[in-house]
């Protein structure tokens, strides 16, 4: 009886998650009356705005990942090595983007960095892009920091650092050749989550008026019937591909295999 109940709950859960996806995919294939077709996908892929916004978001995601790695890896390394007592404070700070809504953060940015401020980032396209990238990095901080911190906990950071130091290595060499390669799987996990976040982010890009994929999704949703669902399916595929890549990287990481 207990087993039956467990199966029933599992089935209910699966239905709850899968049914909307099935419905959405089914609807995205129903553009042509009476038969399933890829017309909605064709229409989306033929739209130059799709290419423009998708390309823009991909570039922003890559830049955000690079910035996030450069910010988070040294920070998490230093906290673990030299200031473990500050770990709760750093963890709290990295969690703030989950508590403060993106709209509040972006209004804060606009207020701080508008054209009449001491650092008028919103005055130029480059400045606004930079601000958006920093905003994305802030949004992905909880995931990137946790992934890197977890990776660092799996290696003996202190001893490896001391071993490298005794062999003549400075901080840059230690981070680049010893620490980063050993937490690469964790960094990539954080990177893929960051990629997924940036690809779907709407609020910051819309309020900073940048041609990102998120606002394009919203625009399509407001004006078209089938295309938004095709876009949503594409967005899901991108997210799942990222998740799949995390699994693949973990599996094929040569030096992290268990000892034989």
């Amino acid at each position: 009886m207990k087993k039956l109940l467990a199966w029933a709950i599992l089935l209910l859960g699966i239905t709850y998650f899968i049914l909307p996806l099935v419905g959405m995919t089914e609807f995205s294939l129903s553009m042509r009356r009476g038969v399933y077709s890829l017309d909605a996908y064709r229409a989306v892929l033929a739209d130059p705005r799709f290419h423009q916004t998708f390309g823009y978001s991909v570039i922003m995601a890559l830049l955000t990942i690079v910035f996030g790695v450069l910010l988070v890896v040294p920070t998490a390394f230093w906290v673990q090595l030299k200031m473990p007592h500050l770990r709760p404070v750093v963890e709290f700070v990295t969690l703030l983007p989950l508590v403060i809504p993106a709209i509040v953060i972006v209004f804060g940015y606009i207020r701080l960095y508008n054209t009449s401020s001491w650092l008028p980032l919103t005055g130029t396209t480059f400045g606004t892009n930079l601000l958006l990238m920093l905003g994305y990095a802030t949004l992905s901080l909880p995931y990137m920091y946790r992934a890197v911190d977890t990776g660092l906990r799996t290696i003996d950071v202190a001893t490896l650092t001391e071993a490298a130091q005794s062999l003549g290595a400075g901080w840059t060499t230690i981070l680049a050749r010893v620490i980063l390669p050993n937490v690469l799987v964790a960094v990539l996990s954080g990177a893929f989550v960051t990629f997924a976040i940036v690809m779907g982010e709407f609020t910051m890009a819309a309020l900073l008026n940048r041609p990102a994929f998120g606002p394009y999704l919203q625009l399509m949703g407001a004006n078209k019937a089938y295309e938004p669902f095709a876009l949503a399916v594409i967005a899901f595929v991108i997210t799942w591909a990222c998740m799949g890549l995390i699994q693949l990287v973990t599996r094929f990481s040569k030096h992290t295999k268990a000892a034989r």
């Binding site: 290696i155 003996d156 001893t159 001391e162 071993a163 005794s166 050993n182 030096h255 992290t256």
Partner: peptide, 13 residues
């Protein structure tokens, strides 16, 4: 200075 540690400390990568 060369140093050998109790925990080996070889670079796993």
């Amino acid at each position: 200075i060369g140093m050998v540690f109790q925990a080996y400390a070889l670079f796993p990568n």
